[in-house]
């Protein structure tokens, strides 16, 4: 009754004024740069010859199509995605399930410790792992592989080793994903789990057919966040990208043309093509989400 009698007017001008920092920032640091990138991609802009910029049409795009590194980069990105993302999602669901179990002792402490690696500088992490995996002085050979009777792991710079390194490091960053899964699991009402139990569902059946479907929104969110992280975008708890050594081979390649060769025109072309690939992947994911993500509001 009272709210009917008095309605606070939230006027338009103040609203626009309030969001103006973002609007200006968006224009200056996002929109104009994106368009400028597009513009650069049609030129032979080189950092060392800033006064000599020529419009070269689609030459950069033709060059990209003929670039032998591109199919390799796409393949490398895809192969990373194919095994890293399921690994991260699976591990964060498993850990969340363990942490959600009322049978676990010292739950808060355990949660804290699992989250810990997610806040460490990635530079420190990279060198910590390199040391851990070092064939001579690291612990992996001495305390894990050798006692199991396996051959020591030799070159830390072999392709397989780098892939394993990226895999373990990405597992180490699942803290935020794990918390989101955990919060989603804690949000499932007890009635639903009780009802499943009444119907004779065991713990495993109830986990796969009740818990998992109920937390699909959290899974979807984590999937998107993990993908963006691999694509070199902004992530939830950004620990700073190690950039050219990062898990996105595409980023490394763009960085090479930008900061090693100063070939801005070609770097911008690569960045734009990469942007399109990312947008297509994200749109595809969103369009399939209606089929498998549970939205309680729609019922």
């Amino acid at each position: 009754m009272q709210t009917k009698r008095f309605r606070l007017r939230y006027d338009k001008a103040t609203g626009l004024l309030l969001i103006s920092p973002w609007l200006i920032g968006f224009a200056l640091f996002k929109l104009i740069p994106i368009l400028a990138s597009l513009g650069f991609s049609f030129t032979d802009f080189h950092m060392l010859e800033p006064d000599n910029i020529n419009f070269i049409g689609l030459d950069n795009y033709v060059r990209l199509l003929q670039d032998e590194a591109i199919p390799y980069l796409i393949l490398a990105t895809l192969s990373t995605i194919i095994w890293i993302i399921p690994l991260q999602l699976g591990a964060s669901i498993l850990l969340a399930a363990l942490l959600n179990s009322p049978r676990l002792k010292a739950r808060t402490l355990t949660r804290t410790l699992f989250f810990l690696p997610s806040i460490i500088p990635s530079v420190a992490i990279a060198f910590m792992w390199l040391g851990f995996l070092d064939p001579g002085t690291g612990w992996l050979n001495r305390f894990i592989l050798m006692p199991l009777g396996l051959d020591g792991f030799n070159g830390i710079y072999s392709d397989a080793a780098v892939a394993i390194l990226i895999g373990i490091s990405s597992l180490w960053a699942i803290g935020p994903g794990m918390l989101i899964m955990l919060a989603a699991m804690q949000g499932i009402s007890h009635e639903i789990l009780e009802a499943a139990k009444m119907d004779g569902a065991g713990p495993l059946v109830s986990f796969f057919f009740v818990t998992i479907p109920m937390i699909t929104p959290a899974i979807f969110f984590s999937l998107i966040i993990n993908l963006i992280a691999l694509f070199g975008g902004v992530i939830l708890l950004d620990r700073g990208n190690t950039f050219s050594n990062g898990s996105s081979p595409f980023d490394g390649y763009i960085s090479f043309w930008m900061f090693d060769r100063w070939d801005i025109g070609y770097a911008a072309t690569l960045a734009w093509v990469f942007l399109l690939i990312v947008l297509i992947v994200i749109l595809l994911l969103f369009s399939t989400s209606r089929r498998w993500v549970y939205y309680p509001d729609r019922e």
């Binding site: 973002w22 650069f40 975008g233 960085s255 930008m258 990312v278 947008l279």
Partner: peptide, 22 residues
């Protein structure tokens, strides 16, 4: 505008870094 704001999360860093750096 709010959707645009959220969409900026998906932008790969380089597409904006190249011109801003320049």
């Amino acid at each position: 505008l709010f959707i645009v704001l959220i969409a900026t999360i998906f932008l790969p860093a380089f597409v904006t870094v190249i011109p801003t750096y320049t």
